[in-house]
Write a protein that binds this DNA or RNA. Structure first.
Lengths: 333, 333
DNA sequence: CTGAAAGCGCTTACAG
DNA sequence: CTGAAAGCGCTTACAG
C-alpha cells in the first residue's frame, strides 16, 4: 500500500510538504499543492491511520460497548450513534458485552489498547471493574442509563421513575388495582427505582391495591410457571408491566398459551417499543425511549468531555413517552 | 498511559527484553521474566495496539460492513460474528452502510485506512466501487450473500433459489395457484433468482397458475395501495411471500387494515425469522437463514484467506430452512 | 540470554 | 515557502 513517502517522491517534494498539503495546512505554493494532490490520487494513497493516531495521540475513533444488538432499544440506539459518527469523520468501534461484566471489562480493555479517543458505555449490571479501568486510565467516557450516580463520569439518564409513575397512573385510572411487574434485573438501580414507584403508588392507593414482581431468568419456562401461578391466584393481576422487549415477547407468548385475553382479561404495558409493537393484536401500549435524543446527548457529552477533560461532570436526564394503544383497557376485575 | 519503556525501566531490563517477555517469547531468564511481568502489572501497562499494528503490519482487527442492524437477519449475524471474535483475541470494527453504496464505499475506505486485516462485507445493491477498492488494495475480504459470482473474492452464498422452490412447492401442495411476491430490490441477483424460480414454477404448473411481483419502496403507502389493488382484482393472490422482515411487518399491518384474514383469506410465507414471527396470530411460516453457519463460514474463509492470500477463491453455499407454521393453509380460492 | 538500533508511516517543531 | 530530523510506541533482526 502506498505511503506518504511514495506521494512525496512522485510529486518531487519533501515528505513534510506532502504531509502539509494532505492535511490542508496553509503555506505551500499552489504549484506543489497540485502536484501532491495529483500524485496522491494517481497512486491511490490512503493515509495510514495507525501511524497518524500513534503520532497525534488521537485516533478519531469512539468506542461503543453495548450488552447486545438484538433488542430494539439497543439496535436503534446504535444506528443513531452510527449516523452521528458519519459527519465529523469519526469512526465507531463497537463491541458487545453480552451483559457479562467480565466480557465487558475485556472488550473495553481492548478498546483502550486501540487508543479510542473516548467510550460510550451502555453498562452491564456490575460495571464497577470496567468503570475503575476507565477512570484509572483517564479515558473519556459517558455512561448511558442504568447508573444513577457516578461522580467520575458524564451520564445520560432516563427518567424511569417518572415513566413508571405515568404507567401506574394510567392503569389506576382504568380501574386496575393489582399490577404485576415482570423484570429481568431487580438489582439494577433503575429497576429498583421503578419498583419503588410502583410500591409507593400501591401503598398510597390503599387496601385492595397490590403490586407483585416476577424476576425472569434465561429460562423461559420459569416465567411460564410463575405467570401461571400468579394468574391462577385469588388476587390475580389485572395488569402486567414488562420491563424490556424480551420479557414482553415471552409474556405475550405465555399469555397466549394460557389463553388469557388481552386486554379483556389482563392489560399490558411494555417498556421499549419493539418493531412489532403495533403489529400484535391488540397493538401494545408502550413506554418509548427517546433513542435519538439519548444518542445525541451522549455523543455531545463525550465530544465535549474530550475537548475539556477537566470540566465538571454533567448529567442529562431524558424522559420516556407513554404511548397508549389497545393492550390496556378498563379493568374487568 | 504507561509504555513498554516504563515497564523495562521499572523491571531494570532493556526494552527488547520487556517486549520478549510480554509477547511470550522464549529465551528470557525466569528471574527477568518475573520482574517484567510484575512491573507491567504494577503500573497497569496496556500495549498500544496502534504502535504494534504499525510495526507488525497487522492489527488483529476484522472490519465488518452491514447495511443495517435493526433487521433480525443482520443483528443475529452480527452477534454471531461478535461471538466468533472473542476467542482468538481479534477485534471487530463494525460500520453501517445504511444500504447506500456511496456510504458503503466511504466506510470501507475508513476501515482500510485503519488497516484492518480483512473485511466481512454484507454488500449494498451496487457494491462495485467498494469491491474495486478492496481488490485494488488487496484487502482480504469475504462477501456474504447478495452476490453470486465475483472472481476476486471468497463468497458465502445462500441458496435462495432452492428455498424458493421449497416455498412454491409447499404453497402449491396446499392448492395455491396465485402467488404474490413482495420484494424490495428486484434487481438484486438473489432476488432475481427467486423471481425466476417462482415464474418457472408457475409456467410449468400450467394455466390458472400465476405469479405477481410487488416492489416496495421507502414509502409504506405505496405498498398499501398496491396490495389493495391486487387483492381487489379477480385474480387476487391466495398466497403472499415477503422477502424480508420489514416487508413482512408492513404487509401484515396492511392486511390487517384491509381486514384480510390469515390464513383464511390469504396465506403468508416470510423470509427471515423475526423475533416476533411466532408471536403474531397466526404464527408465521418462515424461511429461516442459518445465521450461525453463515457467520462461521465467512469467518473461516476470511481467516484462511489472510493466511494464504494466493489460495484459489472459494464459495460456500448454505441452504435455508422452511419452517411451516400457522400462516399458511389450504387455499380457499 | 541480553541490549542497542533500525524501522513501521505518519506529524510537526525547527532551521534555512 | 521548503526540507531534514525527531519522535509517537512498539517489534525484531543483529551483535555480543
Amino acid at each position: 500500500m502506498p505511503t506518504i513517502r511514495d506521494v512525496a517522491l512522485r510529486a518531487g517534494v519533501s515528505l513534510g510538504t506532502a504531509s502539509y498539503v494532505l492535511n490542508g495546512r496553509s503555506g505551500v505554493s499552489e504549484r506543489r499543492r497540485k502536484l501532491v494532490l495529483e500524485a496522491a490520487r494517481d497512486i491511490g494513497y490512503r493515509p495510514n491511520q495507525l501511524a497518524r493516531g500513534l503520532r497525534q495521540q488521537r485516533t478519531d475513533v469512539f468506542g461503543l460497548c453495548a450488552p447486545m444488538i438484538s433488542s430494539a432499544y439497543f439496535s436503534e440506539l446504535i444506528e443513531q450513534f452510527d449516523a452521528l459518527s458519519a459527519e465529523p469523520a469519526r469512526h465507531l468501534m463497537q463491541v458487545l458485552s453480552g451483559g457479562d461484566s467480565e466480557r465487558e471489562y475485556q472488550r473495553v480493555e481492548s478498546l483502550i489498547s486501540r487508543r479510542v479517543d473516548g467510550i460510550l458505555l451502555m453498562p452491564t449490571i456490575n460495571p464497577e471493574r470496567t468503570l475503575d479501568l476507565l477512570a484509572e486510565n483517564h479515558v473519556p467516557a459517558v455512561i448511558v442509563d442504568r447508573i444513577l450516580d457516578e461522580p467520575r463520569f458524564d451520564l445520560v439518564l432516563l427518567d424511569h421513575a417518572g415513566a413508571m409513575r405515568e404507567v401506574v397512573r394510567h392503569l389506576m385510572d382504568q380501574g386496575h388495582r393489582r399490577i404485576l411487574f415482570v423484570v429481568r434485573h431487580p438489582d439494577l438501580v433503575t429497576t429498583r427505582a421503578r419498583i419503588d414507584v410502583l410500591n409507593d403508588a400501591v401503598a398510597e392507593a390503599g387496601s385492595g391495591f397490590r403490586a407483585d414482581i416476577i424476576v425472569t431468568t434465561r429460562e423461559q419456562e420459569e416465567l411460564h410457571d410463575l405467570l401461571a401461578a400468579h394468574l391462577r391466584g385469588r388476587s390475580a393481576p389485572t395488569a402486567i408491566v414488562t420491563s424490556n422487549s424480551i420479557n414482553t415477547l415471552w409474556t405475550l407468548r405465555f399469555l397466549r398459551s394460557l389463553e388469557v385475553r388481552i386486554p379483556d382479561d389482563v392489560s399490558i404495558v411494555a417498556y421499549d417499543e419493539p418493531g412489532w409493537g403495533e403489529l400484535v393484536a391488540p397493538p401494545l401500549t408502550v413506554v418509548r425511549q427517546p433513542t435519538a435524543r439519548i444518542a445525541e446527548a451522549a455523543w455531545r457529552l463525550l465530544t465535549e468531555r474530550i475537548a475539556l477533560p477537566e470540566a465538571p461532570r454533567r448529567r442529562i436526564m431524558l424522559s420516556s413517552e407513554l404511548v397508549v394503544r389497545g393492550s390496556t383497557a378498563r379493568s374487568s376485575g
